[in-house]
């Protein structure tokens, strides 16, 4: 019983981590809580749904979804956030803009396609479970676990060790100084949006597969977990998001198994409040002097 639950927890946690990676990257570099992120996630899942309906396999649907979400993210950023960045509006203004935008986008999608739950065709990915010592996992779950570890690793590499990552970190540190050093900050912002968008889109497809449900508000439904993971991991901390995601998944599954399944969300929220009281910089964050 316990081994199966721990495995389930890790697999559930991998979906949370996958969802939160791009979200925390966006905040870390652009200093924006971008709530339209949830819509990129939904958009990715729907693109994959259309591609597979047209007869494409997962190996076509996944990149197509990632690419489309990335493009949407760049467009949203250019239309809404660039202007505020240029005007040096405070971060609450950009949060409010993305909040309004995401409500309009979800509602428009629901009006266009209807609010019903859709499913990716079962032939897209074998649904048979793999059994090992009595512990069951499905292929979709394994794919998500693999994808989130690989993507988190790739992101850390990109940001820490590549030349582009140096530019990204410079912009994150101080956009003005980075601009003076010859970095094209607008291009870095667009690029970070694109990468976050592709992550969200890919996440939407994989999680849509694992939960076998695609609907317009699926990104919104992930938001609470997204917040808990990015705060617990530390806002902007990629590796922290991976660890926090896995941890949250295990805690939720154990809560559902040993306490009550209705308490999962309440426990997630309790963790959020507890972290804000005790370690607002996240699990691995060092306390910073507060910017007022």
């Amino acid at each position: 019983m316990l081994p199966q639950q721990l495995v389930n927890g890790v697999l559930l946690g991998a979906t949370y981590a996958l969802f939160a990676l791009g979200f925390t990257l966006m905040f870390g570099v652009l200093r924006v809580i971008n709530l339209t992120y949830g819509f990129y996630f939904t958009a990715g899942a729907f693109v994959a749904w259309f591609v597979t309906r047209a007869g494409g396999g997962l190996w076509l649907a996944l990149p197509a979804a990632a690419l489309a979400s990335g493009v949407i993210a760049v467009v949203v950023d250019a239309l809404l956030l660039t202007r505020l960045r240029r005007a040096r509006a405070d971060e609450l203004a950009s949060l409010m803009v993305t909040l309004g935008a995401v409500l309009a986008l979800y509602a428009a999608l629901a009006a266009l396609l209807g609010p019903d739950i859709r499913r990716l065709p079962p032939a897209v990915l074998g649904n048979e479970a793999i059994s090992l010592d009595g512990v069951r996992v499905t292929q979709a779950q394994l794919l998500i676990l693999g994808a989130s570890v690989v993507l988190a690793g790739g992101l850390v590499w990109l940001v820490r060790f590549s030349r582009l990552g140096l530019a990204i970190r410079a912009v994150a540190e101080n956009p003005d100084a980075a601009g003076l050093m010859g970095i094209d900050t607008a291009r870095v912002a667009a690029l970070v949006s694109f990468v976050s968008g592709t992550l969200a889109g890919a996440g939407g497809v994989l999680i849509g597969l694992a939960f076998n449900a695609i609907h317009p508000y699926m990104g919104e439904a992930m938001m609470l977990r997204g917040f808990v993971v990015v705060i617990l991991g530390g806002l902007g901390d990629i590796f922290g998001a991976l660890v926090a995601g896995l941890l949250l998944g295990v805690i939720e599954v154990l809560t559902a198994g040993y306490l009550a399944s209705g308490l999962k969300e309440a426990v997630a929220f309790a963790i959020l409040v507890l972290v804000l009281w005790t370690r607002p910089a996240g699990l691995f964050g060092r306390p910073v002097a507060r910017r007022v």
């Binding site: 809404l80 409010m96 803009v97 309004g100 995401v102 409500l103 309009a104 509602a107 428009a108």
Partner: peptide, 11 residues
């Protein structure tokens, strides 16, 4: 949609 667009435009 209206409420969302109002927020975007107002900000």
């Amino acid at each position: 949609i209206l409420n969302g667009v109002v927020i975007v435009l107002a900000v």
